[in-house]
Simulated scan of single mutants.
Amino acid sequence: MTILIIEDEPKSARLLQQLIESVRADARVTGICGSIEETVHSLSRYMPDLLFMDIELADGNSFDVFRQLPVTAPVIFCTAYDEYMVDAFKTNGIYYLLKPVDEADVRAAFAKLDTIAKALTPDPATLTQFLPQWSAATQYNRSFLVRVRERLVPVAVADIECIAFEHEVSYLYTRKNDKYPLFKTMDEIEAALDPTQFFRINRQMIVQRNAIVAIEPYFNRKVVLTLTAKPADLPIVSRLKVTPFLAWVEKA
C-alpha cells in the first residue's frame, strides 16, 4: 500500500510515518509534501493508495488540493482543528484524526479503511449486471444546445475550442471562432466535458486540447496560452494549475 503524507511540520511528518509503518506492515510511504503546491505537483504525477493529510498548510488550506485536480485516493485527515470535520467528509475523507496522534489512532484509521474496502469489493455477478448502467453514467456531452435568435441549435463538443466566463455569462467559442452564450455555470459545463479533452485552466476558462497552439511563461509563475480561438480575456493558467496542466498536455 503506497501512502503520501501531507504535513508541513517535519517532526510531525516523521512521527506519523513511524506510526504508519509500525501499524501497517504493507505500508510504504512514498513521500512527504509540506505545501499545497508540492502536493498538487506530486499527485499530478502519481496517485498513491492512501493520503494522510493535514489541513492547515504553510500556503493555505489543503481542501484547495481537491479544487486543483481530481483526487481518487481515500484520505485520512490529521489536524489540530475539529471545525473542518464536515468539509473533510465532503471530500475523500474516511477518517478524522485530531493531533496529537498516537498508535491507537492510526490503527483505528486503518481498521476503518479495511472495513470500507471490504464493503466496496463487489460480487462479480453483481458487477457484471450493473456494468451497462455504469458505462452509460460516465458518458459526457456530445453537444450543447445554444439559442440563436428564436431557435435552439446544437453545437458539437468536438467543435468547441474553449469556454470562457465573461460578464457573468458562459460563452462557447468554436473552431470558426463563433461565440454562443450558454446559460450554465462553469462547474456544470466542466462536469459535462471529457477531462481527457478539456482542462479548466482557471475559474473563468476551459480549453480544448487541440485548441492549444503554444504555451509561454507569464507573471508570477503562471503560463499563458495561444489558442486557435480568440476569447476576450487572456487564457492564463493559474499558478496552482500549471503543473497538472502541463502533465495533462503531455498525456495527449
Results as ranks from 00 to 15, higher is better:
Thr30Ala: 07
Ile3Arg: 02
Asp49Ala: 12
Lys222Asn: 12
Ser35Trp: 11
Val249Glu: 04
Val86His: 06
Leu98Asp: 03
Val40Ser: 04
Leu193Met: 06
Met1Ile: 10
Glu37Gln: 14
Ser22Met: 06
Asp105Phe: 06
Val106Arg: 07
Thr226Asp: 08
Val106Glu: 07
Ala13Asp: 07
Thr115Val: 01
Asp233Glu: 15
Ala252Ser: 15
Ser62Gly: 06
Ser135Met: 13
Thr79Pro: 01
Arg67Val: 00
Tyr95His: 13
Phe183Gly: 00
Asp114His: 04
Arg67Leu: 05
Glu103Cys: 03
Lys11Glu: 11
Thr115Pro: 00
Val224Ile: 12
Trp134Val: 09
Asp87Leu: 00
Asp82Thr: 02
Thr174Asp: 10
Asp8Lys: 01
Phe52Asp: 05
Asp114Gln: 09
Ala111Thr: 11
Ala111Met: 09
Asp8Trp: 01
Ala117Cys: 04
Arg151Pro: 00
Ser42Cys: 11
Ala229Asn: 02
Phe199Gln: 09
Asp26Leu: 01
Lys11Tyr: 09
Ser143Gln: 15
Lys11Pro: 00
Ile55Pro: 04
Lys241Cys: 05
Phe130Met: 05
Glu216Thr: 14
Asp49Val: 01
Ala73Pro: 01
Pro231Met: 12
Ala27Thr: 07
Ile3Ala: 12
Asp178Ala: 10
Asp187Trp: 00
Glu250Pro: 00
Cys162Gln: 05
Asp49Phe: 01
Trp248Asp: 07
Ala156Gly: 03
Arg203Ala: 11
Phe130His: 08
Met47Val: 02
Ala137Ser: 12
Val242Thr: 10
Met1Lys: 13
Pro181Ile: 04
Leu131Val: 12
Leu182Val: 04
Ala80Trp: 07
Gln68Glu: 15
Tyr95Phe: 13
Tyr171Met: 04
Asn61Leu: 14
Leu113His: 12
Cys33Ala: 15
Asn220His: 14
Phe219Cys: 02
Asp8Asn: 10
Val224Met: 09
Arg221Asp: 14
Ile212Thr: 08
Asn177Asp: 15
Gln129Asp: 10
Ile201Pro: 00
Ala137Leu: 12
Phe198Thr: 04
Leu172Gly: 03
Glu56Ile: 03
Phe130Cys: 02
Ala136Asp: 13
Asn177Ile: 11
Glu103Ile: 13
Gln129Asn: 06
Glu150Gly: 01
Arg203Trp: 09
Lys99Met: 09
Lys176Ile: 08
Ser12Cys: 05
Arg28Cys: 11
Glu161Trp: 02
Asn220Phe: 08
Arg45Thr: 11
Thr39Trp: 14
Met85Asn: 02
Asp114Glu: 15
Ser170Leu: 01
Gly31Tyr: 13
Asp233Val: 01
Glu21Cys: 05
Glu166Tyr: 09
Lys176Trp: 03
Trp134Ser: 08
Ser62Glu: 10
Tyr95Met: 03
Gln204Asp: 14
Leu4Thr: 10
Thr115Ile: 00
Lys176Ala: 15
Glu9Thr: 11
Ala158Tyr: 03
Phe144Leu: 04
Ala136Asn: 08
Glu166Asn: 04
Phe130Tyr: 15
Asp64Val: 02
Leu127Arg: 11
Pro124Val: 13
Pro154Ser: 10
Leu172Ile: 13
Pro231His: 10
Arg67Ser: 09
Arg221Asn: 15
Asn202Phe: 07
Lys118Cys: 09
Leu16Ala: 10
Pro48Thr: 09
Leu172Ser: 06
